[in-house]
Amino acid sequence: MQNNNEAFELQLSEVEMLQSMYANPGEFVLDDPTSLEQIQAVLAGHVSLENLYTRIGFTVKIAVENDSKSISVEFVCQLPHEYPFVKPQIFTRAPSLCKDRHKLMRDDLNKELDDQAEGEICVGVLVEWLRERLYAELQYLSSHASENSLSSSNKSPKQESRDTLTRLWIYSHHIYSKIKRKDIQDWGQELNLRGFSMPGKPGVICAEGVTCDVDEFWYRIRRMNWKKICIKEQEVIPFPTDTQGSDKTSLFKFDPFFELVLDARGGKGREYHMDLGQFSTFLQEHDSGHVFSLFFGVSGKPADDGD
């Protein structure tokens, strides 16, 4: 009974927090308005747990907007009596999203839930994760609409020349997702690129290879959901002609594509960043020392990070 009382107290405190955060009409709606009173009665000893026939369930409407565009999702949650010592039951409704985009969001949300520690309240964390994801979704939709207006010739990176090497330095607000990390590494290896992906906050990606293959890599990367991602530097170098008898591999600075993991430094929540001193040394060893100030500035803090 003691564990149940602890669980109920945590549930009530989290619901109170969510109600204060989503206080506008229609933003937070309980499935059964009496559920909180019934659980309070159990805690007070007026009702036995065996006679508790309801549990807390609610819907949070999360809406974000950017310029003239807006998007919303309904986060539906049921709390088992044992929550947070067991996982909550969640799903989403997103009529403003296409079916495929909603499925991607739902799958990522469930993975985020799996990563939460049992015994700690997590619904508020999931709601905030979903809000951040919606902002990224707005960015994706805006980018997708712009790209659809381009001519088909601008959409085909494979048409680019194979006579040049491109070295691309990419900045991301962060790279935490295990799925993103795996896809980035798999694509780099599939396209026979050299370079690396460094996870954490910020995320850094360097890809070097035949220009059309690097373009294909960037074509895939930028279609993933990001809070922020941009190219910091792009180098294009002509390959020597076969008649010159030169070794093309001498133009590369890095080994075949890999994930660069250094000593991690923790931050708030799940945030972390790699040891910047080690990263600076790594760049210098690969004739790329100038990139450190490009990404981090002389202070060692992320450059152009607006967060």
Score class of each variant (00 low, 15 high):
Met1Ala: 14
Asn5Pro: 04
Asn5Glu: 10
Glu6Leu: 12
Glu6Ser: 13
Glu9Arg: 14
Leu12Cys: 01
Glu14Thr: 06
Val15Gly: 04
Gln19Ala: 07
Ser20Tyr: 04
Ser20Gly: 09
Asn24Met: 12
Asn24Lys: 13
Gly26Ser: 04
Glu27Phe: 02
Val29Cys: 08
Leu30Gly: 10
Pro33Gly: 08
Gln38Glu: 15
Ile39Trp: 01
Ala41Asp: 05
Val42Ser: 04
Leu43Val: 05
Val47Asn: 07
Val47Asp: 07
Tyr53Lys: 15
Thr54Trp: 10
Arg55Gln: 05
Thr59Arg: 07
Ile62Ala: 05
Val64Trp: 03
Glu65Leu: 07
Asp67His: 05
Asp67Val: 03
Lys69Ser: 14
Ser70Pro: 08
Ser70Thr: 08
Phe75Ile: 09
Val76Arg: 09
Gln78Gly: 11
Leu79Asp: 02
His81Phe: 13
His81Tyr: 11
Val86Pro: 02
Gln89Phe: 08
Gln89Tyr: 08
Phe91Tyr: 13
Phe91Ala: 10
Ala94Thr: 06
Ser96Phe: 10
Leu97His: 00
Asp100Asn: 11
Asp100Gln: 12
Asp100Pro: 04
Met105Ala: 10
Met105Thr: 08
Asp115Trp: 13
Gly124Cys: 10
Gly124His: 12
Leu126Phe: 03
Val127Ser: 11
Val127Trp: 08
Glu128Tyr: 07
Glu132Pro: 03
Glu132Arg: 13
Arg133Leu: 05
Leu134Glu: 01
Tyr135Trp: 09
Ala136Trp: 04
Glu137Thr: 15
Tyr140Asn: 05
Leu141Ser: 14
His144Tyr: 12
His144Ala: 15
Glu147Ala: 12
Lys155Val: 02
Lys155Ser: 07
Trp169Ser: 01
Ile170Gln: 02
Tyr171Cys: 02
Ile175Glu: 01
Tyr176Glu: 03
Ser177His: 00
Ile179Pro: 07
Lys180Pro: 02
Lys180Leu: 00
Arg181Ile: 00
Arg181Cys: 03
Gln185Phe: 11
Trp187Thr: 02
Gly188Ala: 03
Leu191Pro: 04
Asn192Arg: 07
Asn192Glu: 09
Gly195Arg: 05
Gly200Cys: 00
Lys201Met: 01
Pro202Cys: 03
Gly203Pro: 02
Gly209Asp: 07
Cys212Met: 11
Val214Arg: 06
Ile221Val: 15
Arg222Leu: 05
Arg223Gly: 08
Met224Thr: 03
Asn225Glu: 11
Asn225Ile: 13
Lys228Gln: 14
Lys232Gly: 08
Phe239Gln: 00
Phe239Glu: 00
Pro240Tyr: 13
Thr241Cys: 08
Asp242Met: 11
Thr243Ser: 12
Gln244Ile: 01
Gly245Val: 00
Gly245Tyr: 05
Gly245Glu: 01
Ser246Lys: 15
Thr249Gly: 10
Leu251Tyr: 08
Leu251Glu: 10
Lys253Ala: 08
Leu260Tyr: 00
Glu271Leu: 07
Gln278Glu: 08
His286Ser: 06
Val291Tyr: 12
Val291Gln: 13
Leu294Glu: 06
Phe296Thr: 10
Gly297Val: 01
Asp307Gly: 12
